[in-house]
Each structure stands twice: as structure tokens, then as C-alpha cells.
């Protein structure tokens, strides 16, 4: 009885903290504070995963979300100088409309939950370790296995890495042709047909 009582207490504690911190994420004026609050929300979610018998997922959540994604977001805040340039306070009308839209979504979804019967299962969680089952499922190529999505997600991550590098790297100033910065053979000898200044001179001549 003590166990289930403490289960209830911990659930409501984690839930209240998660809701308060996520309100801080969407309302904080300073984006770095919002990033730290996001870290808190994701840690609370990890705690909730532990309560749902998903300890492996809780570990993944802390490693990938709290350790990786939040750090990336902090980098994004700093590299775009959002912390000092843009104090994020939206217009009141926008706040009201956003609140109406999200409350309407909340009301609709809660109404669906109240009116739909869920097929609850009376079974207990399996005695075997969840982690073993997840590993077997991920590499199972039979019926109900997940080896194909597993491989596709690795391809997606590779594409994201390459895309991130290509999009975020320094590009040449406008008017210059695309170069690889001297990496390719023969590029050093390559000279554009005319430079930007010559082009402007030519334009002036034409105008005269």
C-alpha cells in the first residue's frame, strides 16, 4: 500500500513539475532560460518513463534529449545571438489567439478521451527485462520485427548530419561561383569570367 501511495505522489509531483516547466519553456522572455526549462521538462519525462516500466527509454531520453538535443538548442541560441538580440514578447492579440487555439485542442482531445472506451489490458509487465525485448525486436527481421525502420532511421541520421554541415557552413559571398575552398584539383587556376567589380564597370559603360 505504501508503494502504490508513493507511486501516486511521485506521479503528481513529476506531472506538476513538467507542466510548470513547459509553461516556462513557452513563456520565458530569455531563450536560454527556456532552454534550461526544456531540459527540466525532458528530465521529468525520463522520470515518467521509469514509472511506466520503460527504464531503457528513460536512459535514451537522458542521453539523447537532455545530453544532446538541449545542448544543440543552446548552441543555436548562442550562434544566432537570440539571447541578446530578440526579447521574445509576442503581441497580446497573438497570445490570446494562441491560447484559444491550444485550449480548443485541449478541450476536443479531453472530450475524445472521456467518450472513448480503451481496451485496457489486465496483464502485468513482463518478468523479463524490457531492454532485452527491445533489442530483440529492433533486430528481428521476421513478422513484427523492426529491422527495416531501424536501418532507415540510421540513414535519416546520416542525411541529417550531412545536411547540417552543408547548410550551416560558410558560403562564398554573393556573385562568386560555388567553390569548395580549394579542395578540388585545378580549382586554384580557375578564375571566374569576370569579377563583381568588372561587372559593375561594364554596367556603368552600358548606362553611358
Amino acid at each position: 500500500m505504501i508503494a502504490s501511495a508513493s507511486y501516486t505522489v511521485i506521479f503528481y509531483l513529476l506531472a506538476a513539475l513538467a507542466v510548470l516547466l513547459s509553461l516556462a519553456v513557452v513563456n520565458a522572455w530569455k531563450l536560454l532560460r527556456a532552454a534550461i526549462a526544456l531540459m527540466g521538462v525532458l528530465s521529468m519525462s525520463a522520470g515518467l518513463y521509469v514509472m511506466l516500466d520503460a527504464s531503457f527509454l528513460a536512459g535514451v531520453q537522458v542521453l539523447v534529449y537532455v545530453g544532446g538535443i538541449v545542448v544543440l538548442i543552446v548552441f543555436a541560441v548562442m550562434l544566432t545571438r537570440s539571447a541578446e538580440l530578440l526579447q521574445d514578447n509576442p503581441a497580446p492579440l497573438r497570445k490570446i489567439l494562441g491560447a484559444i487555439a491550444s485550449l480548443a485542442f485541449l478541450a476536443a482531445t479531453v472530450g475524445v478521451f472521456r467518450s472513448s472506451p480503451f481496451l485496457l489490458s489486465a496483464e502485468k509487465a513482463p518478468l523479463r527485462d524490457n531492454t532485452t525485448l527491445i533489442g530483440e525486436k529492433l533486430l528481428d527481421y521476421g513478422a513484427g520485427g523492426y529491422v527495416l525502420p531501424f536501418e532507415i532511421i540510421s540513414l535519416l541520421l546520416l542525411i541529417a548530419i550531412i545536411g547540417g554541415i552543408v547548410v550551416a557552413r560558410k558560403t562564398e559571398p554573393q556573385g562568386q561561383p560555388f567553390t569548395t575552398g580549394g579542395d578540388e584539383a585545378g580549382e586554384a587556376e580557375f578564375r571566374p569570367p569576370f569579377t563583381q567589380e568588372e561587372h559593375e564597370d561594364e554596367l556603368e559603360l552600358v548606362e553611358k
Binding site: 507542466v19 509553461l23 519553456v25 513557452v26 494562441g98 491560447a99 487555439a101 491550444s102 485542442f105
Partner: peptide
């Protein structure tokens, strides 16, 4: 949590 995220997305 999803509704709070939606609010942030819109505002």
C-alpha cells in the same frame, strides 16, 4: 503538455 507546446508554436 502537447497543448502547451502548441501554444508556444503559435505565439
Amino acid at each position: 503538455l502537447f497543448s502547451i507546446g502548441l501554444y508556444g508554436l503559435l505565439t
